[in-house]
């Protein structure tokens, strides 16, 4: 489904990704963990084509997106939904308008149909009576939920999460984790989450990939990773816990 083949990327001669390879299984939650500033966001932005690699290929459903022009890239992107770190809701629109935005852009639907989808998606992420509120009136957790509702509005096959639990209190973190798992079960979409939160990772992941110094150093199920005897992996987990 998503194949990342030997991609490298440098910013100002500093290598952020270094010949990185990763296969992401369809219909599963894959969590990429790594330290803050370790290139996780950069990797995620590569997958959706926001950043182009210096070398290497990213293949989405058999299409190499690294050299596509804008028009074709936009077609590929319609398969994606993405939840940004601070939800990236449009400040100038209400929550309802935010969720309706991708529908208005890409679907020819009546206002009534759109409103119905918006309500469905907001219910799915556990939000009620916020349709006419502005994003600034919501708490951080609610914004994330609204952002997720927007990300899944077009029923994408792939949903990307950029640090979904960062900046939330422990209770909220737990509820977001539950939401991610529940949403994935309902939508059966491929979820790619990047995180530095080791607890959440073990809660939600079907598969964990460790990113260290521009490379994926270990891939496995949460249990495999947890019970790994590899000293490097153990230290890595310990570092993240601290």
């Amino acid at each position: 489904m998503i194949e990342i083949i030997k991609i490298s990327k440098s910013f100002n001669s500093q290598k952020v990704l270094d010949d990185l390879d990763l296969n992401i299984d369809p219909g599963k939650i894959t969590v990429i963990i790594g330290q803050s500033g370790g290139g996780k966001s950069v990797l995620l932005k590569h997958i959706i084509g926001l950043i182009r690699p210096d070398s290497g290929q990213i293949i989405i459903d058999g299409i190499d997106i690294t050299n596509l022009n804008d028009k074709k890239l936009n077609e590929v992107r319609k398969k994606f939904g993405m939840l940004f770190q601070d939800a990236a809701l449009f400040d100038s629109m209400t929550v309802g308008e935010n969720v309706a935005f991708p529908l208005n852009e890409h679907k020819r639907l009546s206002r009534k149909e759109i409103n119905k989808i918006v309500d469905d998606k907001l219910n799915l992420v556990g939000l009620e009576n916020v349709t006419h509120k502005m994003p600034s009136e919501l708490s951080g957790g609610m914004r994330k939920r609204a952002g997720l509702a927007r990300a899944i509005a077009l029923d994408p096959k792939i949903v990307l999460f950029d640090e979904p639990t960062t900046g939330l209190d422990p209770i909220m973190r737990e509820s977001i984790d539950k939401l991610i798992v529940a949403t994935q079960e309902r939508t059966k979409a491929t979820f790619v989450v990047i995180s530095h939160d080791i607890e959440s990772t073990f809660t939600i992941a079907h598969k964990v990939a460790m990113l260290y110094q521009g490379k994926i150093v270990a891939v496995g199920t949460p249990d495999e990773i947890r019970s790994s005897n590899n000293s490097f992996v153990r230290r890595f987990i310990k570092d993240l816990r601290d």
Binding site: G81, A88, F101
Partner: peptide, 18 residues
């Protein structure tokens, strides 16, 4: 500028809106 730093512009891109 605000949209840029809060990733709203990236969000537009991911929703296939230039």
């Amino acid at each position: 500028g605000t949209m840029k730093v809060t990733e709203q512009i990236d969000a537009l891109n991911t929703m296939s809106v230039n």
